[in-house]
Every structure is written in C-alpha cells, then in structure tokens.
Simulated scan of single mutants.
Amino acid sequence: MSVRNENTTVVIVGSGVAGLALGNFLLRSGIDCVVLERRSRQYVEQRQRAGVIDFRAARMFRQWGLADRVLGGVPVEPVLNFRIDGRTRPYTYLADDNGEGRFCPQQVLVHNLIDVFVSDGGDLRFEAEEVTPENITGLRPRVRYRDNAGVSRTINSETPRTSCRP
C-alpha cells in the first residue's frame, strides 16, 4: 500500500447535491477542486432521495449557465398533487419570477450534476474510504483517504491559506 501525494485548491467531501453543485460552480470559476465520494457512482446515481428544486435553486443554476444541462425536463406548473385518504390534495410551490418552476427528482439532479462535472473536466473520485480532513484551520489543510485500489492518498492545499478561519 503506497502513499501518493498531490495538490489542489479545494477538496469537497461528498457527492450529494450540495457537493456536486459546489464542484460545478468552482470548476466554472476556474478553481481546481476534487470531489471525494465514499460510495460507487452507480450507488450514488440510483439512491432514492426526496427533494424538489425550488425557484431559487432553478434561478441559481440558470445564472451559472447550468439549468439546461442539470435540471433537464421542461418547465412545469408549480403544483404537486398528493393523494391522502383517497382525495387529491394539491400543493402549490412558489414559481420563480419567470413562472419557470421545475420538478426534478433529486437522484436525476445528482446524475446530471455528475455528468456535467465529469464531462467538463471535473475530478470526481468514487469509493474513497477513510476520508480524513487534517489541519483545516491551519495554513496548509490536507485530506487523507484510501482510494478504491487500496492506495493511501493525501491531497494538500495548493497554496497556503492567509487566514485560519474554517
């Protein structure tokens, strides 16, 4: 089991919606980052999660130029119908300023965020075990983990931090 060292600017732990959205925003801003995920890609893309993209999230993805690639589908009426005790009960959620509410199941959103991140050159590593952030409030934070081949790896901060705030 060898140890390999490398450098990057940001390490994101977890490939959920927040980690993948952040990774995509950093990538689009020209900031190097690595996303580490404990599970396999297949598991992450198929796990069931609850969630709806509200108008603020849809607007944010549009502002970053990612809406068409990430949200998929077409704009829909901002109403979800639930059946409770045999009765349909509509739930109206807020549409954005342009009336472009979107419904995108969270596992579809995660799948699309992965596809966009990887196709745009992002560094996403699945099956990263024993992820351990170290010295996160110091001048040279780092993350240690074991990859899917059992190799221990260390990712160091590319440049020293000028502040010790986490």
Rank of each mutant, 00 (worst) to 15 (best):
T9A: 03
R56H: 15
F126Q: 01
G16R: 04
G19A: 06
R62M: 10
V110D: 07
V13L: 05
P78C: 02
A67G: 02
Q46P: 09
N81D: 09
V35L: 09
I12P: 00
V79H: 03
L22G: 10
Q107T: 06
R4F: 11
R47Y: 06
F82I: 15
L124T: 01
H111W: 14
R146S: 01
G23P: 10
R125L: 02
N156V: 08
Q48T: 12
N7E: 13
R69E: 13
D123Q: 03
A57F: 13
P105L: 03
E130I: 06
V108W: 12
V10G: 01
Q106W: 08
G19K: 00
Y91E: 11
R142T: 11
S163I: 12
A18I: 12
R47L: 10
A67H: 01
D123S: 00
A57K: 11
P105Q: 10
R144W: 10
R56T: 14
T8F: 06
N148I: 10
R161L: 06
S29A: 15
Q106V: 04
E130L: 06
R69W: 08
I53P: 03
E45G: 07
F103Y: 12
S2Q: 12
R59K: 15
V11Q: 00
E127D: 13
F126I: 05
N112A: 03
I12Q: 03
G86C: 08
V151N: 04
V143A: 05
V11N: 05
D32E: 13
R56I: 14
L20A: 00
L113Y: 06
I84H: 07
R140W: 15
R142H: 11
G138S: 09
F55T: 05
G138I: 06
R41S: 00
E130G: 07
V118T: 06
N156Y: 12
W64A: 13
M1V: 13
P160T: 14
V44G: 07
N24H: 04
E158T: 06
I136E: 12
N98D: 14
G65L: 07
R161I: 05
V11R: 04
E158R: 02
D68A: 10
S163A: 15
A50G: 11
M60T: 12
H111N: 15
R28K: 15
Q107V: 09
H111C: 14
F117G: 12
W64H: 03
G101M: 10
R89P: 03
P160Y: 14
N156L: 12
S40N: 06
R153N: 01
N7Q: 15
G121Q: 01
L113D: 09
A18D: 11
G86K: 05
R161C: 02
T159G: 14
R102G: 03
A128H: 03
L20I: 08
G99R: 02
D54L: 13
L80E: 00
G23S: 01
R89Y: 11
D147K: 00
G30H: 15
D85S: 10
V116E: 03
N135S: 08
S119F: 09
I12F: 07
G121M: 07
T154P: 02
R4A: 11
S152Y: 14
Q107H: 09
G101R: 09
V13A: 05
P75M: 07
A21Y: 09
L22K: 07
N112L: 08
R28A: 15
R144N: 12
T132F: 08
I84V: 11
A58Q: 08
D123C: 06
V118D: 00
E77A: 13
